[in-house]
């Protein structure tokens, strides 16, 4: 699924289920062989949420304000409400056991996409939008973003997470 950031930069989103080789994907990510962000799909509630994270990462990276070494790592960092970088990867990244993955590629090239596709042993999910909206882990998300019952009176859990991401650097 191809989407665009504010300045027109393209972002490719892909989703896989029944992934059997997430630990080999993890080592390829760490060695820099694969250029993409790989997320646990249960922690993302909407395509919009991951697009906002991509926008933040892209903006910070291109203006030299990134906290991480690569733009794709910065996507994970943007998704988090924490300022600590090591925690971010433990939370949103791969631990080698996940079977359902969401993949984000900013500025995708045909070759890099093909490389990613061939590295993943799993089934591609076509309706990403629906899969995210219906399959998220509410309890985990509330724990990660520290969302209280009180806060849910002000709006949805998605809005609460988005507000956390956007205000992280101001608190």
């Amino acid at each position: 699924m191809l989407r665009r950031l504010l300045d027109g930069t393209s972002v490719e989103l892909m989703m896989y289920s029944d992934v059997k080789n997430s630990s080999s994907i993890k080592s390829k990510l760490m060695s820099g062989e694969l250029e993409c962000a790989v997320l646990d799909k249960h922690l993302v509630m909407d395509v919009f949420q991951v697009m906002v994270a991509a926008q933040m990462a892209y903006q910070r990276y291109t203006t030299g304000k990134a906290a991480c070494r690569t733009m794709h790592a910065e996507v994970l960092y943007s998704l988090s409400a924490m300022k600590s970088i090591s925690n971010v990867f433990a939370t949103f990244g791969l631990d080698g056991n996940q079977r359902e993955l969401l993949i984000v590629v900013i500025n995708p090239h045909k070759t890099s996409i093909e490389k990613i596709q061939s590295s993943i042993d799993g089934k591609e999910v076509s309706d990403i939008e629906r899969s995210l909206r219906t399959g998220y882990d509410e309890a985990r998300i509330r724990e990660i973003y520290k969302i209280s019952d009180t806060e849910l009176q002000a709006g949805s859990i998605l809005d609460a997470a988005l507000s956390r991401m956007a205000s992280k650097s101001f608190l």
Binding site: Q59, S148, E151, G155, S167, L171
Partner: peptide
């Protein structure tokens, strides 16, 4: 920054105000 901070606080207190999406400082 002040505006963003109070909006975030407002939501945490369960007071309805617009959800924050993205702050572009630049």
């Amino acid at each position: 920054a002040q505006e963003v901070k109070t909006m975030a606080r407002c939501r945490k207190l369960g007071i309805a105000c617009p959800a924050l999406y993205y702050v572009d400082m630049d």
